[in-house]
Amino acid sequence: MNSIKEYFVSFYKGLKSLLIGMKVTLRIFFRKKTTECYPENRETLVIADRFRGTLTMPHDAEDNHKCIACGLCEIACPNGTIHVESVTEVNEETGKKKKVLTRYMYDHGSCMFCQMCVRACPHDAICFDNSFEHAVFTRAKLVKQLNKK
């Protein structure tokens, strides 16, 4: 008797759950689609602020940056993407030596956007911005100098 009862109960349970499933999918069928039609919606495209697109070095109005050429980012980078070139200048008044950045080279093509460099930087001199359209025809164009002077 029990098995007969179970037969019918399982039948109705199964039928009910199937109908619930169909209701769920039908609701999703009419929901707004999440696909972005990318090249067409470039004007209205919203990219999250924290998206890691390109490594940049923010400059102020007089083109000054905060980099002290300590090289911690270069050490932190797992891929050898960053090369910090610097010269040592001697302050004539005090006689103290100071490293001054000459070129901050960043190879975008080998960057894996791990953000280790940004975390290593003691002065917040570098950060990632969210620009992501980087296609170029030669790899050499991906190597960029980040400091302006």
Partner: peptide, 13 residues
């Protein structure tokens, strides 16, 4: 198309 709509996609476009 219908498969795409059931998955919140647009399908071939």
């Amino acid at each position: 198309k219908i498969c795409a709509w059931f998955q919140c996609r647009l399908g071939p476009n």
